[in-house]
């Protein structure tokens, strides 16, 4: 565990909590892509199956349980509790165009051809593109609430910090996982355009951030 890993995990946790609280407090999931949130629930479920087979640490187990729990709670709020506020018409990204190629890639390129390893690889690849329905939705409506941009910033920052963590681990532990690094790079690059807008147009007294 190094400082980049820890701050990355905390940034990820902050993003998840921010989104849950935003929906809960406003009693609305307007502007939030339910499809992205379902993909994240699938990502956590397929990645953390090792909860059943191995114990790493109390930190590891509890964070995994919190991530999974919050992901399903978010999906529940969007599709059940506040379903009336869900903007399905604007959430029109075709997720099969992500899930099918990502599934094929996980079968082809993985560390070990076993069910658990393929599911883990699938979750890594899927996470890298899971935000696309959300970004697509924002580009379609042309705006995002400030709190939604904070969510996206924390979520993007998390993977960028993990990249620094992997550089650290390469230098100090000689550890290099090309699958995670490749997917992490793709994931971070997808947020770059958003990072730029967040820094230049966010904050101040703007209520909303417009995206092209």
């Amino acid at each position: 565990m190094n400082v980049f890993r820890l701050t990355g995990d905390l940034s990820h946790l902050a993003a998840i909590i921010i989104l849950l609280l935003k929906i809960w407090k406003s009693r609305s999931c307007a502007g939030i892509s339910g499809k992205s949130q379902i993909l994240f629930a699938v990502v956590f479920t397929t990645r953390y199956l090792d909860l059943l087979t191995s114990f790493i640490s109390l930190y590891n187990t509890s964070m995994k349980l919190i991530y999974i729990g919050c992901a399903y709670a978010t999906v529940y709020l969007i599709y059940v509790k506040f379903r009336a506020t869900y903007d399905g018409n604007h959430d029109s990204f075709r997720v099969e165009f992500l899930v099918v190629p990502v599934g094929g890639l996980a079968v082809l390129i993985n560390h070990n051809f076993s069910l658990m390893e393929i599911l883990w690889t699938f979750s890594i690849y899927l996470e890298s593109v899971a935000i696309l329905p959300q970004l697509f939705m924002i580009s379609k409506t042309g705006e995002a609430e400030t709190i939604t941009t904070h969510y996206l910033f924390c979520l993007g920052l998390y993977r960028a910090l993990y990249l620094l963590n992997w550089i650290w681990r390469y230098y100090f532990e000689g550890f290099l996982d090309m699958i995670a690094i490749f997917a992490g790079l793709v994931q971070t690059v997808l947020y770059c355009d958003f990072f730029y807008l967040y820094v230049t147009k966010g904050g101040k007294d703007r209520k909303k951030v417009m995206l092209p």
């Binding site: 890993r5 191995s54 790493i56 590891n60 995994k64 070990n112 290099l176 996982d177």
Partner: peptide
């Protein structure tokens, strides 16, 4: 390059 993943990462 390791043919494995970091099992401690989230």
């Amino acid at each position: 390059c390791h043919r494995t993943r970091a099992k401690d990462e989230l």
